[in-house]
């Protein structure tokens, strides 16, 4: 297992270089001039433009810009935004926000997904099963921003006297400000997690060891809770692991709409401004999160299912 983990971690190195270069090249390839973009519809002041071009190496060809960026990165300098804030400062402020949002979303999804999946699986074909299928399918067909606006408007604005949940989480902090955006991401993935749980439960309920457990006279709570549910968790955990990456990605939408000062909102605004160092730094971080999450999921397999062995 140690060697397996080490090999997977080594594989992250080419992933790191590949993504940084690709993203750098993509931001570089966006048409237009970032200095002009900063000035809106007026021409930038010549002295100001010269200053910005010098400061951000904007006159260099792509490979040279990338080289200079990686050189700085090696010394721990993540670069600066166009308004001269160090990216490390942004990270310090925004990283916790995105992590909190992801964990909140994941928590809500795990709770609802497992719960609904379990209910549906135990009453297969019943009203609950059909209702869960219908509502989760409805949710999954919403684009993220529609879901976010719906929740924001109906719960945050119309239902403010009932729910008291903030529309924009600028100042309220965890947990209240994170419930609606967390719920948004959770509902989007709910169809997958609840269906997976349901199918898995249904399958395992028919398994020999469950029949044995029932025959032994174990109480139903133990049969379902330990013998069925635990074994049914494997595909769900895999899914939730990859969902970490998805929720981080959806944060571009949810954080922007719920005004949470996280990495997603930053990426959205930096991409539009053509701030290559910021976009590259933050997206690379997301890629690493995604890769790490899948690694952890793979390792968790072995814990959940002793039959799975790593060489």
């Amino acid at each position: 297992m140690g060697r397996y983990a080490a090999r997977r971690i080594l594989q992250m190195i080419p992933v790191f270089f590949g993504t940084t270069f690709l993203i750098f090249a993509m931001v570089y390839a966006t048409p237009g001039d970032p200095v002009q973009r900063l000035s809106g519809e007026k021409r930038p002041d010549p002295s100001r433009a010269a200053f910005l071009r010098a400061e951000y190496n904007l006159n260099d060809p792509l490979v040279v810009q990338y080289g200079k960026y990686m050189g700085k990165l090696a010394t721990g300098d993540l670069g600066k935004t166009f308004n001269e804030r160090p990216v490390s400062d942004l990270l310090k402020q925004q990283w916790p926000v995105s992590v909190k949002l992801t964990l909140t979303g994941l928590g809500i999804q795990a709770f609802l997904g497992l719960g609904l999946g379990l209910l549906a699986g135990l009453r297969r074909g019943g009203v609950v099963d059909k209702a869960v299928l219908f509502t989760t399918l409805l949710f999954v067909s919403f684009p993220a921003f529609v879901m976010a606006f719906i929740l924001q408007f109906f719960i945050g604005v119309q239902g403010r006297d009932v729910f008291h949940l903030p529309v924009a989480g600028t100042t309220q902090g965890w947990p209240v400000a994170y419930i609606l955006p967390g719920l948004t991401t959770a509902l989007l993935g709910l169809a997958y997690s609840s269906r997976l749980t349901r199918t898995s439960i249904v399958e395992n309920l028919r398994a020999d060891y469950v029949r044995t457990a029932v025959a032994k006279g174990l109480p139903r709570r133990r049969v379902v809770g330990v013998h069925t549910l635990r074994n049914s968790l494997i595909p769900v955990v895999t899914f939730l692991g990859t969902e970490v990456g998805t929720i981080f990605g959806t944060a571009i939408v949810t954080e922007s709409i719920f005004n949470l000062n996280g990495l997603g909102r930053q990426i959205a605004s930096s991409a539009r401004a053509g701030e290559a160092p910021v976009v590259v730094g933050l997206v690379t971080l997301l890629v690493l999160v995604y890769v790490s999450a899948t690694l952890i999921v793979d390792l968790l397999y072995g814990v959940l299912d002793p039959r799975i062995r790593y060489d």
Binding site: R160, S256, I257, F258, N259
Partner: peptide, 17 residues
């Protein structure tokens, strides 16, 4: 209060925040 999107700010205004 710093907002990224005007829609959000408008919702916040309607919600009384």
């Amino acid at each position: 209060k710093i907002y990224e999107s005007l829609e959000t700010a408008y919702n916040d205004l309607q919600a009384g925040n």
